[in-house]
Design a protein around this nucleic acid. Structure first.
Lengths: 250, 250
DNA sequence: GGCGATCATTGACCTGGGTCAACCGCCGAC
DNA sequence: GTCGGCGGTTGACCCAGGTCAATGATCGCC
């Protein structure tokens, strides 16, 4: 079940920031379980929990038919659907604090790949549900997380189905500024944990197109980039504008 | 909240099959509520339920900030995100028996449009949840429906992000054969309730491309069509093959 | 049964972004 | 510091599918 490294990538993945192996389970409890529910549910959940530490580039594969819940205690990861040999679709990015659910899919295989050092707490879905199902508050919390995932996925459908390359990139950067940006909302900074390839695979584009659009947004003074991953958003409104998030007036 | 007709469409929408206005609420109860939960929950749910009958082409719009659950008692509908003036993305098709949840979206407006005569039972989301949240079995059932919606949405992302026009159409037809097909699995027949435009808006294509791909699949003997909406799948395996549903070997 | 509007199909052409290829520059290793 | 390699950028070209336009098929209506 665990973490075969993608062939080409491991060599250079160093353990620069090897953090002390602190138990991530309490973090899961306080993030996911409403306070009143925690004491009763934490012990049985801990009994079925598995903790996985991934280095950047390593993957967590879901075998066919074995649904799992995965809590991201730290780090960042991409959820990838394998359409075929050289066609991967990044279905979602997930960051520390996210809880996701990966199912046995009808049409494609999925895998979760760490973008950097990442710690996961995972549970078999059926056992997880049967522990938690009697607790309405937890089910409601789960439910709301799934709603959010569904909403994000639908927004992605709009992006993939009806937007130009520039709109997708602008929307992507605006979303990232919102989800993992630092600094004030007027000039947020983002340290992108994913490569250009990951961005391309998420937005249904190629790395070349991603790169060209970054260059255009840079030329238009909407963003500044430093190094491969650091982006400073100079004009968030302008960016959102180019993202084509048009609502019906009023 | 209700059913403004899309401007251009109402004129010809006739009430050919005007069915007697049977109360759809019991259908909701038996489809969505597990039997043991029904007696306790049905009355309070009925108190907040609104029944809506739509003719083909009429829409049910969700106003900003008012999440609703919608049960489709009969008929068929498309859930549309309004990307902008002439860019609509059909985010999902739904058929009788489906329960969906429509939220106040962050970036786009959504609306539900009937593809034919359709009966809905709708509930304000917050009130609905607070009634059912104490019932683990119902929450679990809701949860599973949302999982399925999420899975479908992710599959749509793969389709929109990484598939060719022909793969999208083949996959669409295979899915429709599965969801609303009649007859044996070897030669299922489908009566498509949606127009070519709806299909195009769902798959991120244009009507012309949809039409061309239908023609190609017809020429390849994979399907036969009669009239606008009737499709007979002659070779489901071949269709699935062209859908590019490549799983990793094994 | 025939009319007419709308939807679907087909063809000709065009373009956004994919593909292929060359180069650059960041970053970790030593 | 300098070296090497990978990831990113840039340019030239091409093609799947979008656009524009004209014709044909359905189907509700009278």
């Amino acid at each position: 079940m665990i973490a075969g490294a993608l062939p080409a990538q491991t060599a250079r993945m160093t353990n620069r920031h090897r953090s002390p192996p602190r138990d991530p389970f309490p973090h899961f409890v306080e993030t996911v379980l409403p306070a009143p529910s925690a004491p009763a549910l934490a012990p049985p959940l801990r009994a079925i929990a598995q903790t996985v530490a991934l280095e950047g580039g390593q993957t967590f594969r879901i075998e066919r038919g074995a649904d799992r819940f995965v809590f991201i205690a730290s780090g960042a990861a991409k959820l990838v659907a394998l359409a075929s040999a050289r066609r991967e679709q990044v279905v979602a990015f997930h960051f520390a604090g996210d809880l996701l659910w990966i199912a046995s899919p009808p049409a494609h295989d999925y895998l979760l790949a760490a973008l950097a050092g990442t710690t996961l707490v995972t549970f078999p879905a059926t056992a997880f549900i049967s522990i938690v199902e009697s607790d309405a508050a937890v089910m409601k919390a789960l439910f709301e997380r799934m709603q959010q995932a569904l909403l994000r996925s639908r927004e992605k459908s709009v992006s993939l189905g009806r937007k130009t390359a520039q709109e997708r990139i602008a929307g992507f950067l605006a979303t990232m500024a919102d989800r993992i940006g630092t600094g004030d909302a007027l000039g947020p900074q983002v340290d992108l944990p994913m490569s250009r390839r990951d961005i391309a695979d998420s937005l249904g584009l190629t790395i070349e197109t991603v790169s060209r659009q970054f260059s255009e947004l840079r030329a238009a003074q909407l963003i500044e980039t430093h190094g491969r991953s650091h982006v400073r958003v100079c004009n968030l409104a302008g960016l959102a504008d180019r993202a084509g998030h048009a609502r019906a007036p009023l």
